[in-house]
């Protein structure tokens, strides 16, 4: 029983972070049609920025985190200006390749700035644990779950209830018609780049205190989050959140009970299966509003 509780708790925390990564990915895709393969490196950059604000700038943990997230908003805008705006009218494939180039550039900049040695990010709750049904669960994992849940709900609210959210959805559905209703596509795109980068930073900051940050830190998360997004139908935000939780839980429970050696490969297998068998996404049973 305690084993099941421990594995479930860690699966949910992992799924929550995946959801934040995947939503960042999706926000940008919806607003601009760009599948941004630099997203994982934005996760990495966000974590490094938080290391920088809390150590080099000496800010306390939480203000340091918030400063890093705000900085990542500016980074998002800068990427829109430098890498996306000039390619706006190019075919999607060109833009996707440009995001790969952006990923390499970001990684190179981090390496020059911070070196390639791993860094640690202090967490606000340290190594404390709580015991639930006999299972020891790190407080950082509860914090991750809570903060991610708030972020996801806030994002769903923005998408569902605010003019900006409607504009992004309109843009995703029919870009030309969106312009005819006066939607300023460039501003919306810029906002989406900023929002997406901030979500990436949040995910990085949530999970970094559990391990350490190095140059490859965000890449693996992005790949797994991509699998979650595809599982969720790559469109509906709610579906993606569900997909992320399913992947997180299956990876931990599968890894804990059945085939431990293959736990890490599992998201990739899911990705293949979904693309091959049910490209519209396992969870996308009806066309969703979100």
């Amino acid at each position: 029983m305690d084993k099941f509780v421990a594995l479930t708790a860690s699966g949910i925390a992992y799924g929550a972070v995946l959801a934040v990564v995947a939503l960042g990915f999706l926000v940008l895709y919806k607003a601009t049609g760009v599948v941004n393969f630099a997203h994982g490196d934005l996760v990495t950059l966000g974590a490094y920025l938080a290391v920088w604000t809390t150590t080099s700038l000496g800010l306390p943990t939480v203000p340091g985190y918030l400063a890093a997230i705000a900085l990542m908003g500016l980074v998002g805008v800068a990427i829109e200006r430098v890498a996306y705006a000039p390619l706006r009218s190019r075919p999607p494939m060109v833009v996707v390749i440009a995001t790969l180039a952006a990923a390499i550039v970001i990684r190179g900049i981090i390496a020059v700035w911070q070196g390639s040695e791993p860094k640690t990010l202090a967490g606000p709750v340290g190594n404390r644990v709580v015991h639930i049904a006999g299972a020891a669960i790190a407080e950082q994992r509860l914090l991750i779950t809570g903060v991610a849940a708030v972020a996801v709900l806030a994002l769903l609210f923005v998408f569902q209830r605010t003019p900006y959210g409607r504009q992004v959805r309109a843009l995703a559905a029919d870009p030309e018609m969106a312009r005819l209703t006066g939607v300023r596509t460039r501003l919306v795109a810029m906002g989406a780049f900023a929002l997406s980068a901030m979500l990436a930073a949040l995910a990085g900051i949530l999970i970094a205190p559990l391990g350490a940050v190095d140059l490859n830190f965000g890449f693996g998360l992005m790949v797994t989050a991509f699998a979650a997004a595809v599982l969720g139908g790559f469109g509906s935000l709610g579906g993606v959140v569900l997909g992320a939780l399913v992947i997180g839980l299956i990876q931990q429970l599968f890894g804990g009970y059945v085939l431990p050696d293959y736990a890490a490969t599992f998201p990739a297998i899911v990705l293949f299966l979904v693309i091959a068998v049910r490209p519209e996404g396992l969870l996308n049973l009806t066309r969703s509003r979100l």
Binding site: A6, R141, L210, G211, G220, Q252, G256, P260, A263
Partner: peptide, 16 residues
Amino acid sequence: SKYAPNATDVTPTVLA
């Protein structure tokens, strides 16, 4: 028990 090189959660290993 093995885990991914980028693992941030090795609960299954610890329990094993």
